[in-house]
Design a protein around this nucleic acid. Structure first.
Lengths: 137, 137
DNA sequence: GTATCTGCAAACCATTTGCATAGAT
DNA sequence: ATCTATGCAAATGGTTTGCAGATAC
């Protein structure tokens, strides 16, 4: 968090109020893996002079530096801050993503599938009831 | 496959040449979990008088009936035909999705996370090398 | 015969890009 | 002073929708 900001500065990137607020919002809302647009709403509450462009370029920078990971869910880009291989339970119908702390299971999966030295994320997508209606998961 | 077509007819949906070819293309290319657009290209090779609209509405129908499942990968909608809980290894950088047949591991995960009666899919997303560059996974 | 399907074209909408100005260092 | 960041506004691109004419039943 502060580490990220320092690292940015160290790498020659500039730390602007907008950027600072984007990083802060990502950090504070990391549990819900927010979509870019909902993150944007949050950021604007505290720093109204932030454009989506700025948020976007900041997120891309963080992703490129490996501080953040992006994945799609139902047509939106969502943010994952936990960079360690771990498990997410995904409820596409509700747009909800829940972190599961079970390193033992992660290791077990990695061992079983030969992912020992791989950088990976386990998304377990839970489909609603009957298989009716739902679109993209 | 033929089952699907019969089922469609039984439910009062009409089986047109275009629709037939869409179902066929989905089935034949199921292993690569094609994106809608690439599926469309395939369909047009055999049945040039098919619009994207038609493909789209057919896929949505199949999804609604529970014959097919849709998920996002790097901004595209991709198709999953295997409706049983199973494991997909996803390589977002290459846009590749590989089915893994390991029912034992699936059961193990389900047991461990209490997903016994849930309808789910395990997507294991493999991130490329350094964490640089890559965008959405 | 008629309710559904097809295909064209337009709408949608999150994302992505270009560029002139502002600002961090 | 310099070089990166900001924000506006336009472009992109896959998806989604509306509707008049065509077609499976």
């Amino acid at each position: 968090m502060r580490r990220i900001v320092d690292e940015l500065r160290r790498k020659g990137y500039r730390v602007t109020p907008q950027r600072l607020e984007v990083v802060r919002a990502i950090w504070e809302n990391r549990a819900e893996h927010p979509a870019l647009r909902s993150l944007y709403d949050r950021v604007r509450r505290r720093m109204p002079t932030t454009s989506f462009s700025t948020l976007y370029s900041t997120v891309m920078k963080l992703s490129g530096l490996g501080y953040v990971r992006l994945f799609d869910l139902s047509g939106e880009t969502r943010i994952e801050v936990n960079m360690k291989p771990h498990i997410n339970i995904v409820y596409p119908e509700e747009g909800r993503v829940v972190d599961v702390e079970d390193q033992e299971l992660v290791n077990l999966i990695a061992g079983r599938l030969g992912l020992r030295d791989k950088d990976f994320l386990v998304n377990i997508v839970i489909y609603g009831g009957r298989g009716k209606g739902g679109k993209k998961g």
